[in-house]
């Protein structure tokens, strides 16, 4: 069985919030603000794909990514943890504002690959948090989709998937082909990979396609879009810090409660 894992690089999420900026022209953070890294949920999806390969549930894993040239780093990482192939749809911007367009690009590439039976995606990109791409790809493929998956096993010939549900963990039997979006879990922390694989990954070829090669020129891509980002800004957060001075903890607590009551943030029973 062939599985495709959808990847995306996002701006380093450890960038201190006060350093975060938006370029009003591109409606994106300016280039070079912080390194671009493989998103955390995509790391989980990649780890799950590799685990499925190790346990023999899938035979081949292809990592697929739509992003700027530099995003090839994420694909190298995927190859370093033993993905079999890597495909890069080279777009100039870090991402497309409309998840429908992203899904259309990925779908076009998936259709060119050896037909997969399983597509894994992160539950949401860690930057825009739309959480749509995996579902949109499933819709276009007319495949079932299971969200927030954190474990998949083949038991007695059936594929069983565990997902985080409203009331706890849920287990589903899944009929293939299917799309799954993957959530974070301690068992899905992306492995380090050994150095021989890391070095081999640097020598492995990455297939690159342009949107045009996938039949999605600017016009087709625009036609696939449904949403337009009208505006984006960093909300202003005002902070006011007040230190409560006191001799001992008991006095400090009493003073803090008084102050919170004064600010009408707390009301003590009479």
């Amino acid at each position: 069985m062939h599985a495709v894992v959808l990847l995306k690089q996002i701006l380093d999420w450890e960038l201190p919030p006060r350093k975060f900026r938006i370029d009003q022209e591109t409606k994106r953070p300016p280039d070079g603000l912080a390194p671009a890294l493989l998103g955390p949920f995509e790391q989980n999806a990649l780890e799950l794909a590799i685990q499925l390969k190790e346990t023999g549930v899938v035979e081949r894993v292809t990592a697929l990514l739509a992003g700027p040239p530099g995003a090839a780093d994420a694909l190298r990482k995927a190859l370093a943890v033993r993905c079999d192939d890597a495909v890069h749809i080279v777009v100039e911007a870090p991402d497309l504002h409309d998840p429908s367009q992203t899904a259309e690009l990925l779908l076009a590439a998936i259709r060119r690959l050896e037909p997969p039976e399983l597509v894994l995606a992160g539950r949401q990109a860690g930057d825009w948090d739309h959480g749509q791409v995996g579902h949109l790809v499933a819709e276009r493929l007319r495949w079932p989709v299971l969200g927030l998956v954190w474990q998949v096993e083949r038991i007695d010939g059936r594929l069983l998937a565990w997902r985080s549900g409203v009331y706890g963990s849920e287990q589903f039997a899944v009929r293939l082909p299917a799309v799954m979006t993957v959530t974070s879990h301690s068992s899905l922390r992306l492995r380090m990979g050994n150095v021989m694989d890391l070095m081999a990954a640097n020598r492995k070829p990455i297939t690159t396609w342009t949107p045009e090669e996938l039949g999605l020129g600017p016009e087709e891509l625009a036609a696939a879009g449904r949403l337009e980002l009208a505006d984006v800004w960093v909300p202003e957060v005002e902070r006011h810090c007040e230190l409560i001075e006191a001799e001992d903890p008991a006095e400090a607590v009493a003073a803090l409660l008084d102050r919170l009551e004064e600010l009408k943030l707390l009301k003590r029973p009479a």
């Binding site: 922390r189 992306l190 492995r191 380090m192 990979g193 050994n194 150095v195 021989m196």
Partner: peptide
């Protein structure tokens, strides 16, 4: 352990990442 076996404590892996 680190380079051939990729067997390091979790925090070491995170530090390297």
């Amino acid at each position: 352990l680190a380079m051939e076996q990729a067997a390091v404590p979790t925090r070491v892996g995170e530090m390297v990442a």
